[in-house]
Amino acid sequence: MLQFEASVLWNAAVSEDVYHLGLTAPSDFGRARPGQFVMVRIPRAPGALLRRPFSIHKLIFDGGRRVSGFELLYKTVGKGTHALINYRIGDTLPILGPLGSSFSANKPWRRVFLVAGGIGVAPMPFLADRLLAKRLNPEDCHVFIGGQSAADLLCQDDFRALGVPLTLTTDDGSAGDQCLITHPVEAALDRSPPDALFACGPMPMLACLAGFLEQRGIFAQVSVESMMACGMGACLGCALPVRDTHAPYRHACIDGPVFDLDQIAV
């Protein structure tokens, strides 16, 4: 089932403007891969006509290995997300998904960096989980999270529970080092380079990563955002520029949202 009505399992604040939302799903949602997203219709949002895209933050299991739902991590930024906080346990939301491309989590990586800026951390716990399930040693899955201040550094407990190394930075110095997250990433790249780097966050962060990853020839994938109307390849609204300015645009919803870093212009 790609189109279904999900019931709200929980919808709780994790910081002033970020919430996690647990939703039920048919068991075949278990085919979802890290980096994929869902389109959520928010009928109670006045004026929000189109569905809104959100990354799959985690899968929810029914005690055993069967998937019974999934979780989103969302930040309130506008009419849709502000209305979303009013949904209570048992309320329903129309969902399309899972949609889009995913991070290459199934390769036998030996050392991986996960780099997230702000709400861009949303797909990372699912990704880390899959990587460890594929026998990556926790100490070889280094997570870097950057934000404006301490409250923006989300999911720290999830990563601590997985036992992975965690490096934090903030713009205002309220947690971790006061610098951009790309600084410690670049330093770590030279100390002990990974064989893959997966990132999600603001464009300037991705552009900066692209700069120094290319020189070092490290395989990297990024999840990027674009305005979307349909989420399924029908409207062609989600075009993204590519490096070659004559080549056709890529489409964030079907070719992405996860791209090899050298595929798109960041």
């Binding site: 004026g47 929000a48 006509l49 189109l50 674009s226 305005m227 979307m228 109307a229 409207c235 062609l236 609204g237 989600c238 075009a239 993204l240 520029p241 645009y249």
Partner: peptide, 18 residues
């Protein structure tokens, strides 16, 4: 087609410039 951004939601509708 046109460069992005190409779509935006507006009151009870959307604009596209695909």
């Amino acid at each position: 087609g046109n460069p992005p951004p190409r779509v935006v939601e507006t009151a009870s509708g959307m604009l596209n410039a695909i």
